[in-house]
């Protein structure tokens, strides 16, 4: 029973991390219909910022997530202004290929500047700390990341659903021309959405170095799993992305432990195929 609970806990904690990464992607995808291929690289860049803050000035990830979030917000907003804006109204492939190019650019810049070294942050406030409840071990860095994730996802959801800004974002997502006729500055909304998407993944990136090595390729699988969360949860649905992310975390953990570790991604992507086949718009899709 303890093992079962441990596996379930690991799955939920992993899922909550995926949810934070997926929330930003879902926002961008849902509002702008743009697939941001550089999402994993936003995560990687934010991890590097957090790592260097920790390594050079001993800033703990529990604080540097703020800097990483703000930085990734700026990276996202700039990405929109300099790249995505020029692809709006053109073929969907244009934005996709542009962000793919950006992902290659960011990855190779980091490879050149920081080298492919695996960078590990030691002596973090929560690093390596655990506590046990009835034999089930809670890892503090992962638990903290998950709680942050829940809070950020809830805040983004409230922002979209309960504020005038959120309504403007929803209006822009539904009908850009109509939103403009209502006086909404859609250009500003797009900048904000891309920035917010970046900030979500930036916060995740800021927290991750407390237990994960930072290197140029670290974002690859995270971004792939985030795509699956968004597509499974429903395009543009933050609760959908959260639900799908936790589901993916649980499937990954249970199939990894009870079937075979090497099978875990087979189960995750298999589930994704089943959901997309059964409900192409995703579980909570509009």
């Amino acid at each position: 029973m303890v093992t079962f609970l441990q596996v379930a806990l690991d799955g939920i904690l992993s899922g909550l991390l995926y949810a934070l990464i997926a929330a930003g992607l879902s926002l961008i995808w849902g509002v702008m219909d743009v697939i941001n291929f550089a999402h994993g690289e936003f995560l990687m860049v934010a991890m590097y910022l957090s790592y260097w803050l920790g390594f050079l000035w001993k800033v703990d990830p529990l604080i540097s997530w703020i800097a990483s979030g703000v930085f990734a917000f700026l990276v996202g907003a700039l990405t929109y202004k300099l790249i995505i804006r020029h692809t709006i109204g053109k073929s969907a492939m244009a934005a996709l290929l542009a962000t793919f190019g950006l992902s290659m650019f960011l990855k190779n810049v980091c490879l050149y500047v920081f080298s492919p070294n695996f960078r590990i942050l030691n002596d973090t406030f929560l690093g390596g700390k655990t506590f046990s409840v009835g034999g089930v071990i809670f890892s503090l860095p992962q638990l903290a990341t998950s709680l942050f994730s829940l809070c950020v996802v809830a805040l983004v959801y409230l922002l979209i659903k309960k504020t005038r800004l959120g309504w403007a974002i929803q209006a822009t997502a539904m009908d850009k021309e109509a939103a403009e006729l209502m006086g909404i500055n859609t250009e500003w909304i797009y900048v904000l959405v891309f920035g917010l998407g970046g900030a979500c993944v930036g916060i995740a990136g800021g927290l991750l170095p407390s237990y994960l090595a930072t290197f140029p390729d670290v974002g690859g699988l995270f971004s792939l799993l985030a795509f699956v969360c968004v597509a499974m949860g429903g395009f543009g649905s933050i609760p959908g992305a959260l639900f799908a992310a936790i589901l993916i975390g649980l499937v990954e953990a249970f199939s990894g432990f009870y079937v075979a570790p090497v099978f875990k991604y087979v189960a995750v992507f298999g589930l994704y195929l089943v959901v997309v086949f059964w409900r192409p718009r995703g579980l909570f899709g509009w």
Partner: peptide, 20 residues
């Protein structure tokens, strides 16, 4: 006998399998 995909986001199931 625990195989894993390189570059995995976590190795929880893998280590849990070893631990068991």
């Amino acid at each position: 006998d625990v195989a894993f995909n390189p570059g995995a986001t976590n190795l929880n199931s893998e280590v849990q399998t070893l631990k068991a």
